[in-house]
């Protein structure tokens, strides 16, 4: 089972190529904002980026707090999936994800769960992120 992970945030150049790839591939959208991950920029500290990708938690807090069961654990390997019809747009899931990896689709007012497909990895020029093989029991939080 492969899962998206941050390999080395210090190698990030802040090009946002990963976010563009994610938005483009799933929404055909020419933006960074539909991406299921974020590269964050800190003001004043030139060159400091923080990469927030879904950690594929085995016991995901985002799903645990969902009042309607819209966000549910995937059967295998950690992470979550969304049953869109059940979502009541309360954003409890977003607040529950302390590492702020779960993203919010402002337009549709629903969370954007990461599929762990690895398209972002394919467009990272500096091996900041990677698809890492992991046993199920290992798929717990690493930040």
């Amino acid at each position: 089972m492969k899962r998206l992970q941050v390999i080395d945030r210090d190698q990030c150049i802040g090009c946002f190529s990963c976010m563009f790839a994610c938005s483009r591939s799933f929404y055909k959208a020419l933006t960074t904002e539909k991406s299921a991950m974020r590269v964050r920029v800190y003001p004043g500290l030139e060159g400091a980026f923080s990469i927030r990708v879904c950690d594929a938690c085995l016991e995901p807090d985002c799903a645990s707090v969902c009042p309607t069961g819209a966000l549910i654990k995937r059967e295998k390997g950690g992470g979550v999936k969304l049953i869109e019809d059940k979502c009541i747009h309360c954003q409890k899931c977003i607040k529950a994800c302390l590492i702020a990896s779960l993203q919010w689709d402002r337009e549709k007012k629903i969370p954007i769960p990461c599929r762990h497909c690895g398209i972002c990895v394919q467009y990272c020029p500096n091996h900041v992120i990677g698809m890492v093989d992991m046993k199920e029991e290992e798929a717990v939080s690493h930040v």
Partner: peptide, 17 residues
Amino acid sequence: LIQQIACAHCQCGCIHI
């Protein structure tokens, strides 16, 4: 040199800090 960074949507990253 401590880092090279990039403009948005440039995978080259020529900004030398």
